[in-house]
C-alpha cells in the first residue's frame, strides 16, 4: 500500500495538521509501512462475524436526567486561551 503525496496532504488537512513538504514525504513513507503491516489482516476470514463494540459485552448504560451546575465552570472559563467576559474568544470565523 503506497500512499501518494496528495493523499497525505488530504489526510493532514482533514486532521488539521500543518506539514512541511519534508514531513509530507516522511509521513508518506511511514504511513505506507504501517498500512503494509496491517494489510495482513485481510487474511483473517471474518465472514458473518459481527464487529465488536464493548469487549466486556456491556450495553444499555444510561444516566438519570438530573441537572447540576458544575463547580468547575469558572475554572474552565479562566483557562480559555483568550476570552471576552465569559465568552471564549477566537480569530474571526467569518
Amino acid at each position: 500500500m503506497i500512499l501518494t503525496t496528495e493523499q497525505v496532504r488530504k489526510i493532514a488537512a482533514l486532521a488539521r495538521i500543518k506539514l512541511t513538504d519534508d514531513e509530507v514525504e516522511k509521513f508518506r513513507k511511514e504511513l505506507s509501512v504501517v498500512l503494509d503491516y496491517v494489510s495482513e489482516l485481510e487474511k483473517v476470514n471474518t465472514d458473518g462475524v459481527e464487529e465488536i463494540s464493548q469487549v466486556t459485552g456491556l450495553e444499555n448504560v444510561l444516566r438519570e436526567d438530573i441537572a447540576r451546575l458544575s463547580e468547575f465552570r469558572d475554572a474552565i472559563i479562566a483557562s480559555f486561551p483568550e476570552r471576552k467576559d465569559d465568552f471564549l474568544k477566537i480569530k474571526s470565523i467569518l
Binding site: I66, A67, L69, F72
Partner: peptide, 25 residues
C-alpha cells in the same frame, strides 16, 4: 426537553442568556 444535557449533567436550558453558564468539564 430534558433537564440535563445529552451526555453530561449540565442544565439543558435554551433560555439561558449568560454565556458559558451551563458548562462543565
Amino acid at each position: 426537553k430534558t433537564k440535563s444535557k445529552m451526555f453530561c449533567d449540565s442544565p439543558n436550558n435554551p433560555d439561558e442568556t449568560v454565556p458559558n453558564t451551563n458548562i462543565c468539564e
